[in-house]
Design a protein around this nucleic acid. Structure first.
Length: 841
RNA sequence: GCCCAAGUGGCGGAAUUGGCAGACGCGCUAGGUUCAGGACCUAGUGGGCUUCGGCCCGUGGGGGUUCAAGUCCCUCCUUGGGCACCA
């Protein structure tokens, strides 16, 4: 009989479905294990990245189940989002229809892959039964002031016709479509992520199950910096100007002040005209500010960076030395960071240096190196060719602070500023609140009503869900599509009953994915988002597997939601995920597979050619999970060969095995059988370690391949039919092999399990253990070095640790003796079981 | 510019704590089988030399620590990733 993957795979998938083998029915007394993979956006068909992601998760879920854990392993669809709407526009269909069709296709593909999901728990975020809980959670956040509405300068994607969160803008481009993002002032809903900045940051230190790379990216994103807020008086105006700096020690080097064009003072002066020292007329001045405001910002223009500015005609007074500093408005200060105003210290800040050079402002160094030679600019400021941002010692020009180190000066200056009431410590963060409003149709309606009399009113819980009206128009242009659906917009105010209007924006789809792991626990519950008892039992997720692309985006929101929900008393945990595995990409020709590049390998095609098991084995075998790997046709053939050989081995010997099954354990074994048994236990040890701790499935599979090769060698020497009393070793080794193969190639191993005469499912078998006594060898081989070079190896009894005896044994080796050449052994080192190192004088 | 990974045969990769580098797979070579091809089986496969005993070189380059370095330290190079007008 020949290995026929298609036949075996459909046979067992039918059996699994009929017997509900993957339904999660938690049994008491077992430890829980929540294995979660990032749910896919239903874009059409499964791609290789999905296959890799879900194969990894499936191995872990099956492996844990075989260790007796109650394993939660669900799957669903992240089904709200722009592509559905765009497809609807292009194909003149409805997003709901397109989405439903894609889900059908992808679910069936996932089922064809034999993944051990509990499909009873499937969720899809576009269904009202799911998104009503987005709305419910939104209202809970609103009650606690963790959701709020404000006017803000936002990232507008002109191509997607919607605003984007800061996390969704990469290098000033839209993360999804790549269009250049514009600034636009709008009124929007926000989630107060900044209420948790310190916890989000500090929590990273404890997340030792997360890759350092991801933690670093989140730290960078949060961007905490500690410094000082300093208040300057604006001369002859009664105004104050507050700036933020991390380098108050350089304040004696300040030679100008800078405002963002949106700064309140800048806006006022734009209205009222420039100060007395300006040479510009009011109109010129105002238009200069307008121009600055429109210049591209928030991006490093590198060499071509064009900093520009306009002098306001006003001066600020440095509170430390009473110096008059001209106030400028520029395009390089951002209003939404710090106070939107800075002091310009060109000698010690690259950007200020560049600006000062352009406008001929003084450059005055005030920090010198603490030790070593002083650069020329310490005495001759005009020698300065670039800013020095080093921490050092304050130069004589710094009055009372001269001679202090930067650190000491920072401390003293802060104290003095506090005492003089013109400064205080301040901490600034790069991270901003999460803007969640989207001017699109295919998302969760924001459950809020605007009443002319009552203001902003929450939709009452009992009126949830606010369902998406089906009849919207999809033109992809002209504001929120919901705004054009009269029957949706017009509503009675829940408070006063008068005519009111609904919010017409929808929520960012990242809201859906921020808490979905909890909905899997109670997917059909219509009274609550999830059962609290279940959440307490199953949380946190033990392992979460997905792409690195979400290192900041989704994973930051995920953590935020967990903390916010804990504070809403909806959860007992404050971190959602214990261990994070970020899997690498499947490449083709060095780049990610993509339709536009035409380098896509269709998993369906691989499955029909080589079978599900071979496809799964290959994506696991090609590289460790976190690394990218190149798709290789030859590689999958090798995996297919491995499965074929496994099949042939057992298919060719199981009948003989049955005939002599009487032979029992305890029989005295001769060498080849002892060695095969040892190898099998050794393999058990290796596979267990690789899967359990390191999640290196490639080496686990390699170990199984080695064992198979040993089996071939053994059966070639002594066929099963001739093994007699030792045949039980073959049975034991084959069963071990089949059971350990089960997480990787579940269909084939199930078939072989049956062939070996067993009923039931191999996934319900206990994972094999190994016996130290079996692993032990009677003798071990040790390398012998002479003067640092390997010159031979010796075979010695396993327990032998006596140094003199081992050295004596080593010297019996003729090649070793030749290299020692009768010289004295000056020193020797012995690591029992590994090496004997001899050194001649 | 700053920070973090990584660099090992023709290729993907292995080497758990400093202890015989190259497991496993692909590819390649030879032999077997076959009408032929494919498939399958067996053996070999880092480079150079060899008197066939072995010897020399070898984990991006250079230096160091050590009886012993892919592994630790210093330095440089390359690739990938992250951050970058955030004061």
């Amino acid at each position: 009989m020949k290995y026929d993957p298609g036949k075996i795979e459909s046979k067992w998938q039918e059996n699994w479905a009929a017997d509900d083998v993957y339904r999660m029915t938690a049994s008491d007394g077992n430890e829980k294990y929540y294995c979660l993979e990032m749910f896919p956006y239903p874009s059409g068909k499964l791609h290789m990245g999905h296959v890799r992601n879900y194969s990894i998760g499936d191995v872990i879920a099956r492996y844990r189940r075989m260790h007796g854990f109650n394993v939660m392993h669900p799957m669903g669809f992240d089904s709200f989002g722009m592509p559905a709407e765009n497809a609807a526009i292009e194909r003149n269909t409805h997003p709901a229809i397109w989405t439903r069709q894609n889900i059908e296709v992808m679910r069936s593909q996932l089922q064809d892959m034999g993944f051990a999901y509990d499909w009873e728990r499937e969720i899809a975020s576009h269904r009202p039964g799911y998104y009503r809980w987005n709305q419910w959670l939104f209202l809970r956040l609103l009650e606690r002031d963790l959701a709020y509405r404000k006017d803000a300068l936002l990232n507008w994607c002109p191509s997607c016709e919607t605003v984007l969160a800061n996390e969704q803008v990469e290098e000033n481009l839209c993360w999804r479509c790549g269009a250049v993002v514009e600034d636009r002032r709008m009124s929007q809903w926000f989630f107060r992520v900044t209420a948790y900045t310190d916890e989000l940051l500090d929590g990273l230190d404890e997340l030792d199950g997360w890759p350092e790379r991801v933690r670093t990216m989140q730290r960078n994103w949060i961007g905490k910096s500690s410094g000082t807020r300093v208040t300057f008086d604006v001369e002859d105006s009664g105004e104050e100007l507050v700036i933020f700096t991390t380098r108050i020690d350089t304040i004696f080097g300040a030679s100008f002040m800078v405002l963002a064009p949106e700064h309140p003072l800048a806006e006022r002066w734009r209205e009222n005209g420039p100060g007395p020292d300006s040479e510009q007329v009011p109109e010129e001045f105002a238009s200069a500010i307008d121009k600055l405001e429109k210049m591209p910002r928030r991006q490093n223009l590198g060499e071509a960076s064009d900093k520009a500015g306009v002098f306001t005609g006003y001066y600020a007074i440095n509170p430390f030395n009473r110096e008059r500093l001209p106030i400028w408005i520029t395009n390089f200060v951002l209003m939404d960071y710090g106070t939107g105003a800075i002091m310009g210290v060109p000698a010690h800040d690259e950007r200020d240096f560049e600006f000062a050079q352009k406008y001929g402002l003084p450059i005055r160094p005030v920090i010198g190196p603490g030790e070593g030679d002083s650069p020329a600019w310490v005495d001759q400021p005009d020698q300065m060719e670039e800013a020095s941002s080093l921490y050092g010692v304050l130069l004589p020009i710094c009055g009372d602070y001269a001679g202090m180190t930067s650190e000491a000066a920072q401390q003293k200056m802060l104290e003095d500023a506090n005492a003089g009431d013109f400064g205080e410590t301040a901490v600034e963060y790069k991270i901003k609140d999460w803007g969640v409003s989207r001017q699109r149709y295919w998302g969760t309606p924001i459950p809020v009503i605007y009443c002319p009399d009552c203001g902003t009113v929450s939709v009452p819980d009992e009126d949830l869900p606010v369902t998406l009206p089906e009849e919207a128009e999809f033109t992809g242009a002209g504001g929120s599509p919901l705004g054009r659906v009269e029957s949706f917009v017009n509503v009675d105010c829940p408070t006063c009953g008068g005519p009111a209007k609904r919010e017409t924006d929808t929520m960012d789809t990242f809201v859906c994915s921020s808490w979905y792991y909890l909905r899997y626990l109670s997917p059909h519950d219509s009274r609550q988002p999830y059962d609290r008892g279940d959440a307490d039992y199953w949380g946190p997720v033990d392992i979460y597997i997905g792409g690195i692309t979400h290192a900041v985006l989704h994973l930051l929101y995920f953590r935020f939601f967990c903390k916010a929900m804990a504070d809403l008393d909806l959860l007992s945990i404050r971190e959602p995920v214990t261990r994070l595995l970020t899997q690498g990409m499947v490449l083709m020709g060095g780049t990610a597979m993509s339709k536009s590049k035409g380098n896509v390998v269709d998993p369906g095609e691989m499955v029909s050619r080589y079978g599900v098991d071979a496809t799964r084995i290959f994506v696991l075998f090609a590289a460790p999970p976190e690394r990218d790997f190149e798709w290789d046709e030859g590689g999958i053939e090798g995996c297919s060969r491995f499965l074929n050989r496994t099949f042939s081995l057992i298919e060719g010997s199981h009948e003989a095995l049955e005939r002599i099954s009487g032979a029992g354990e305890g029989t005295h074994l001769v060498e080849p059988f002892l060695e095969l048994r040892r190898k099998a236990h050794e393999t058990t040890r290796r596979v267990t370690q690789e899967v359990d701790q390191r999640l290196h499935f490639n080496t686990a599979i390699a170990a199984l391949m080695e064992l198979l090769n040993e089996c071939y060698a053994a059966t070639a020497a002594v066929p099963v039919a001739e093994a007699g009393m030792a045949a039980w070793v073959y049975r034991d080794v084959f069963e071990r092999m089949v059971v350990m193969l089960a997480p990787f190639a579940p269909h084939l191993s199930q078939e072989l399990w049956e062939m070996l005469g067993h009923e039931g499912y191999v996934v319900d078998q206990a994972w094999p253990t190994y016996d130290i006594a079996v692993l032990a060898r009677e003798s071990v081989s040790m390398a012998v070095q002479v003067d640092g070079k390997v010159r031979g190896s010796i075979e010695v009894p396993a327990g032998l640790e006596d140094k003199d005896a081992l050295v004596a044994e080593a010297l019996k080796n003729s090649n070793v003796a030749r290299h020692v050449k009768g010289r004295l052994i000056a020193r020797s080192f012995v690591v029992p079981g590994k090496i004997v190192s001899l050194n001649t004088g």
